[in-house]
Amino acid sequence: MASAAGTPVDDACVLKFKELKSKRKFKYVTYKIEDSTIVVGNEGAPTASFDDFVEALPENDPRYAVYDFEWETKDGCKKSKIVFVTWVPDTAKIRQKMLYASSKDKFKRELDGIQIEIQATDFSEVEEQVFRDKCN
């Protein structure tokens, strides 16, 4: 039922994602559900840091986000993966939680090229270390 129940997605969402993926124009893009459509929230320049990304997540409202995560492996090799984050803080309204949970699956499938997925409900789950563990 998750796949069937999906909120319509604004075209700009996929467009921005492609720019992040192919042209690396952004470090991250966040998405939100507004007037029962998924729209682009905000985006970070390629130079943005991880902290900038965390700051872009509101404390009490859910968001979806994609993040172009780069790290260095033990033997000094640079790698990168695109991480999809579902940000649903515990303090969000229950209706919001539900809406984001049920629309996620379909939305994620529209963004072709996601390698890693993270579900986060508090800030301890959006830390660089968590991302690195997940990617390795």
Binding site: A4, A5, T7, P8, S36, I94, R95, M98
Partner: peptide, 14 residues
């Protein structure tokens, strides 16, 4: 959970 699911516009096709 049921209350919200059944009221989502996108669920109505289910």
């Amino acid at each position: 959970g049921g209350s919200i699911l059944a009221s989502l516009g996108s669920f109505q096709q289910c």
